[in-house]
Design a protein around this nucleic acid. Structure first.
Length: 212
DNA sequence: GACCAGGCACATC
DNA sequence: GATGTGCATGGT
């Protein structure tokens, strides 16, 4: 099918993307919140600051005043909002899993996803990024690039909701975490290179792909 | 100086 | 249920 074809085409064109950039499941979860509507290079600065302050762990972050946390993550933008969101996630991790991502990893995917979505500041994409990239759960992550690429090629309307986009990938692909990992990363890559709002389709590896 | 970036919650209609 | 708005930094 076309979903598999697109993956093969992108993988051949770009090769493996080796996501998620991060040293630990905890760092990946923090990065998932920090990167909301934000360029990754800004997130890297914020994470570097957290490491410099030796604050990239649940216990330290839990005790850190929120104003202090906001100032540390400033380069990531929306720092007041994100400080609150990080605090909410840490609270969940401390209260339910004794501060350990390993404990979270033991959970069944579906109920865990529901619980993540109930945390303030964690929506579908952030929850799924944490599930796939930090916890090795076979959940496909949908983002603005995924929607842009599929809608550009007439595969699905841009305004269709998150769940329907995700359902398409879950139907068409084996539940393979390596495949899901690479595919999402490849969407981001090709989205940045060739699927911007101001179209740059001439050299796009998917330019002859059409659902019709 | 405008535009964009690996979203989400909340207000309003 | 759909649509609009605030949040903010750093790179191009």
């Amino acid at each position: 099918m076309i979903i598999r074809q697109i993956y093969d085409r992108l993988y051949l064109f770009y090769g493996p993307q080796q996501w998620w950039p991060g040293d630990s499941p905890f760092e990946i979860a923090v990065g998932a919140i920090l990167t909301q509507n934000t360029n990754w290079s800004n997130v890297e600065m914020a994470i570097k600051n957290l490491k410099r302050e030796k604050a990239l762990n649940a216990k330290t972050l839990h005790d850190l005043p929120i104003e202090k946390l906001a100032s540390i993550i400033k380069p990531a933008g929306y720092f007041n909002v994100k400080a609150r969101r990080l605090k909410a996630f840490i609270e969940f991790l401390v209260n339910n899993y004794n501060s350990s991502m390993e404990g979270m990893k033991e959970e069944e995917t579906d109920p865990l996803r529901e619980n993540l979505l109930n945390i303030h500041g964690i929506g579908h994409e952030t929850a799924d990024s944490i599930l796939l990239y930090a916890l090795d759960k076979p959940v496909f992550v949908i983002d603005v690039y995924t929607k842009r690429v599929l809608s550009r090629h007439g595969i699905m309307d841009y305004n269709v909701n998150y769940g329907e986009y995700q359902y398409l990938f879950h139907q068409e692909l084996d539940k393979d975490i390596h495949l899901f990992n690479e595919y999402h990363a490849l969407f981001v890559k090709t989205g940045k290179d060739y699927c911007r709002p101001k179209s740059r389709c001439e050299k796009c590896p998917l330019k002859d792909i059409d659902s019709k």
